[in-house]
Design a protein around this nucleic acid. Sequence first.
DNA 1: CATGATAGATAACGTGCGTTAGGTATCGTA
DNA 2: TACGATACCTAACGCACGTTATCTATCATG
Lengths: 192, 192
Amino acid sequence: MPPTTRYDRDTIVEAAFELAKEGGFSAISTRAVAKRLGCSVAPIYQNFATVDDLLAAVVERVRAMSGELLAAQTGPDPFENMGKASLAFARDYPALFREMALEPNDYVAPHELIEDAMAPVMAGDPALAGWSDAARRRLFLKMRVFQLGLSAMVANGHLPSWMDEKAVEELLMETGEEIAAGMMSTRKDEQE
Amino acid sequence: MPPTTRYDRDTIVEAAFELAKEGGFSAISTRAVAKRLGCSVAPIYQNFATVDDLLAAVVERVRAMSGELLAAQTGPDPFENMGKASLAFARDYPALFREMALEPNDYVAPHELIEDAMAPVMAGDPALAGWSDAARRRLFLKMRVFQLGLSAMVANGHLPSWMDEKAVEELLMETGEEIAAGMMSTRKDEQE
DNA sequence: CATGATAGATAACGTGCGTTAGGTATCGTA
DNA sequence: TACGATACCTAACGCACGTTATCTATCATG
């Protein structure tokens, strides 16, 4: 019946993803995607009602990629895995990291939700045994803030030039431990 | 000779600044600025050769505003002043903060330069007496990272809803002290 | 082999952009 | 009062965008 499909949905999303990887979401336009695929805009409108629908599919594609980066971290410490995945995201996909983490949008869950999701993980961490729930949550917030700042500097190339990937990860881990140690030593755990 | 000027350079820059404050630099277009002023695009091209020149003037205006925010912090501790000024920037001008601090551009000086500028300040800080220069620089880097992350969360409204301005400033100060305390207690000061 | 469903191409629409050419109106001076 | 410098307006150019109407070409089925 119909001619064989040359540009299916996934192919289109992939082309748009590559454009966004290089120039952010604003680099996605019907004509730019078509040009990258070597076709006209017709296949795009056959698969997506509007360019916003295509953008939504690309965002979904980015989320999947982000999840893969996290899954690629197979160390024993979940916090370390999350931190390293964030740094990898910022390093390998700086434009996308900015779009997803440094712009106001609905892609980032509210901190409370993330915190609630991490609460049981922290409760099972032997390094945090004896900490109050409030203190654990406050530590998590601090580490998330530091991780975001470090990832932002990575994504924007604002870190000292001598810091390579390994040095950045070390800085993240080292500071995390120091914050925890600092919270322990200043003993404000319970009076928040 | 000529008719009296109704839209001078500063007026135009101010209008463009307000647009950028609300919608980022991309909200600055000749027609949008003209509409805000209630005039045509002619006065803009009388004062600026291109819209990029206007943008450069707006960036200068933003830098001045940022400097005023810093000058408004009159506490004794320069690091605390810088941190609070950064938070005020992110809170009061989130779109501009993103443009200036969370995008790759030439507006942010390389970290090494900032570090060199702060080195003498840190050297005179009694709280850091006995610290090696390398350790002081590393502490400064960590605090800058944390400050950036916290400011980014403020600018994007990603902080827990219960955190008001005061709570955010306390988090910044508290964590700064904890990092310093953690670095002290883990005693790695000298072997970087 | 003819048909019909449909993948894809083409070209046009309206909008907003930067920029510019040409016209109008003001206002101190001669 | 007439002049000239110039602040400002209007309208247009070319370009890129999202979107759509129309056309062409394919290809399994009858």
